[in-house]
Design a protein around this nucleic acid. Structure first.
Ligand code: FES
Ligand code: FES
Lengths: 175, 175
DNA sequence: TATTTACAGGACCCATTTGGTCCTGTATTC
DNA sequence: GAATACAGGACCAAATGGGTCCTGTAAATA
């Protein structure tokens, strides 16, 4: 079906909620550290079952996208600014590194490799998709005007810059 | 895991085989209709199990990517020129229309919709990926120099044109 | 220090999807 | 009318996904 898993879908919704809660660098917040919400609060805001939300949050924390604080006043907060968190990083955090086919995974992962004729094209396709997803950030997702103003090509300038670097691997971005 | 299914992977390999077999509009072939290969021949060339190849071929035919001929001299041939068959069309033929999340599917497919805050961004992300995949054709995949010469941005001009149209749905492209 | 709160890390379970084979039927050629 | 090759499913085993729950540990507070 070529879908992102449901966990990832939830993850993005939750991240959007966290980004929205962040009061745009309000001075008071700066002093008390990054603003955070706990799992229960996030579950309520996103209207999702708590156990699921908790699972997603733990995964995002492990991947380094979120930072967690234990104890009574605990909760989760973004590890970076929303502008710096790309969609491809979010996806990589929850789905693992982007590899559309076996062959585009790490090394020698595909068993067709011996006879296959299209391995290197797959690598390119992978990178193109990767760059597309890297051209959108969490900040874009929570910007109400984004959908309206965004032509399908608005991300191109950014894509341009990203493409110059040899497509940093997703793990680099996340961990 | 965010992978294309194995069937799709096979499908692309097989399509590449068919495109390669096509002798670049050799005159004799033009008269006798499009060159074709049968399932057994393709299975051998791709070194894949025949039943699997057969399944994939049938799916591709149903989707309109291939044309089939029954009987003794039967077989499969490309329904279009390799230059006109995009990667996104191939994927759509075997995986169904591109919809990275539930919400980006047709209408009201996502149950989070009521409370969700990121629906429209998803639609955009979808389209960006779609356009990326539409910027590469079967002809590119079989062009040996493609991988070497292709910078991650070589597809941009094409992407530009594609983006002007309101992102034709994958089903339009295929069926 | 005891208690409470909230995250960490898995183990599980059931439903769905994939990967793969095989069988029966129909069109084509000779 | 015999042989060939596609059409369309049924079918099964294995893997994945969606979701819950349990046990443990860190932090805050009274
Ligand atoms: S399909 Fe995997 S190496 Fe080509
Ligand atoms: S996640 Fe589906 S509508 Fe937002």
């Amino acid at each position: 079906m070529f879908r992102l898993s449901r966990v990832t879908d939830y993850g993005i919704v939750i991240l959007a909620e966290l980004a929205r809660h962040r009061p745009d660098d309000e001075p008071a917040e700066l002093m008390s550290g990054a603003p955070s919400l706990n799992a229960r609060e996030l579950a309520e805001r996103a209207d999702l079952p708590l156990p699921m939300v908790s699972k997603v949050l733990k995964a995002l924390t492990r991947a380094g996208v979120l930072e967690s604080q234990r104890g009574t006043k605990g909760g989760y907060s973004l590890a970076r600014d929303p502008e710096e968190l790309t969609v491809s990083a979010m996806i990589a955090a929850l789905e693992g590194p982007l590899a559309l086919t076996q062959c585009s995974d790490g090394e020698a992962a595909c068993d067709l490799e011996a006879t296959c004729s299209v391995k290197s094209p797959w690598l390119i396709i992978n990178r193109v998709v990767q760059n597309s997803l890297a051209s959108i950030t969490l900040a874009d997702l929570t910007n109400p005007g984004f959908a309206a103003q965004h032509t399908p090509l608005a991300g191109l300038a950014q894509l341009q810059t990203l493409a110059d670097a040899p497509a940093k691997t997703t793990s680099d971005e996340v961990r």
